[in-house]
């Protein structure tokens, strides 16, 4: 089964660029160490950032099935300790720039897969 993780993040007006840079620098490297692969990233409104409008950013990650999902979920730091506090620290930092966010776990639709 293919398993995906979709982050849907509503960023405060005027902060979309700042958020994208923070996500790339603070979140992406750790996620890739956890063997998550960024399958796509999108935004709306499309085409450009509007300082007057909140932007919604989407990041779609692919993992290696259920095992890969648990692997990223239960990840450890190099010293063997739980990584959850580092993950939580990033999302608390993220919360300072956002209005709301969702994280969804997805699979292919059975009829189409």
């Amino acid at each position: 089964m293919k398993v995906y993780i979709l982050d849907e993040i509503v960023v405060q007006p005027g902060r979309a660029g700042e958020y994208r840079r923070a996500y790339a620098a603070r979140y992406v490297p750790g996620a890739e160490r956890r063997r998550m692969r960024l399958a796509g990233a999108w935004q709306t409104p499309p085409g450009q950032d509007f300082a007057e409008l909140a932007a919604t950013l989407f990041y779609l990650w692919e993992v290696d099935g259920i095992e890969g999902w648990w692997s990223q979920r239960m990840s450890k730091l190099p010293d063997g300790t739980d990584e959850r506090f580092e993950k939580l620290a990033w999302w608390q930092e993220s919360d300072q720039m956002t209005l709301s966010r969702k994280r969804r776990v997805l699979s292919d639709q059975a009829e189409i897969a």
Binding site: W69, W70, R73, K87, L88, W91, K102, R103, V105
Partner: peptide, 24 residues
């Protein structure tokens, strides 16, 4: 391995999810 666990209930235990409410 059931999706009801990792695809639904676990969000309340996962520090990466907005639903996170369970003390680690």
């Amino acid at each position: 391995t059931h999706p009801v666990h990792w695809g639904h209930v676990d969000a309340f235990f996962d520090a990466e999810c907005p639903e996170y409410i369970v003390d680690p």
